[in-house]
Computed example of a mutant assay.
Amino acid sequence: MYLRKGPGPRIVTLPDGTQMTRADLPPDGTTRWVARRKEAVVRGVQAGLLTREEAIERYELSDEEFDSWEQAMNSHGTNGLKTTLLQHFRQS
């Protein structure tokens, strides 16, 4: 069986020692975003699994939306990506 190799690495090691592959990313065209899926996209971009531009195009995101996910995750971790806690984190 022949597997087509796409651009970029197929597997990366994250800072916590875990490995992430393209299979760990949400499917193309995802429209329902939960914190776990947002985190996977942001971690994938930060680790170099996919480029920022590729993520924005693949998931039909705006620059501002991706920036807000990245900033929330860097400031508050995965909990910062939960929409129910967004107002709480913005006030503190």
Rank of each mutant, 00 (worst) to 15 (best):
A55G: 07
E39G: 03
G17F: 10
E54T: 04
G44W: 04
H88G: 10
G29E: 15
V34Y: 07
E65N: 10
T51L: 07
V12P: 11
A55E: 00
T31K: 06
G80E: 10
N79S: 15
T84Y: 11
H88C: 08
L49Q: 05
R43M: 07
L61N: 03
L25I: 09
T18N: 13
R22A: 02
N74W: 11
T51P: 04
E70W: 09
G48I: 05
Q19R: 13
G48E: 07
G6A: 13
T31R: 07
G29W: 13
T21C: 07
N74L: 14
E39C: 10
M20E: 08
V34E: 03
E70M: 12
Y2H: 15
G44P: 00
N79L: 15
E64S: 15
Q46W: 02
R36I: 01
Q71N: 15
T78Y: 02
D16N: 15
G48N: 09
P7N: 11
T51K: 02
T84W: 10
E57S: 15
V34M: 01
L85M: 13
E64P: 08
T21S: 15
T78K: 09
G80V: 13
G29L: 12
T83F: 11
E64Y: 12
N79G: 12
W33G: 02
K38Q: 11
N74R: 15
G29I: 12
S62W: 08
K5H: 12
R58T: 08
T21L: 05
Q19A: 10
S68V: 05
D67W: 06
Q91C: 03
Q91E: 14
A72C: 11
G80L: 12
R37Y: 01
R36W: 00
L14A: 09
D28K: 07
G6H: 12
E65K: 14
T13F: 03
R37E: 06
D16K: 05
G17Y: 06
T31W: 03
V41H: 01
Q91M: 11
K38P: 08
L61R: 06
L81S: 05
T30V: 07
V12M: 03
V41I: 01
H88K: 13
R58F: 03
G80Q: 10
Y59N: 10
I56N: 03
S62I: 06
D28I: 00
A40D: 02
L14P: 12
K82F: 11
T84C: 10
E53R: 02
M73G: 06
N74S: 14
R32F: 02
L50N: 05
A72V: 06
E64G: 13
G77P: 09
E65G: 11
H76L: 10
F66E: 06
H88P: 00
P9F: 06
D28C: 06
P7A: 11
R36G: 00
R22L: 04
T30Y: 00
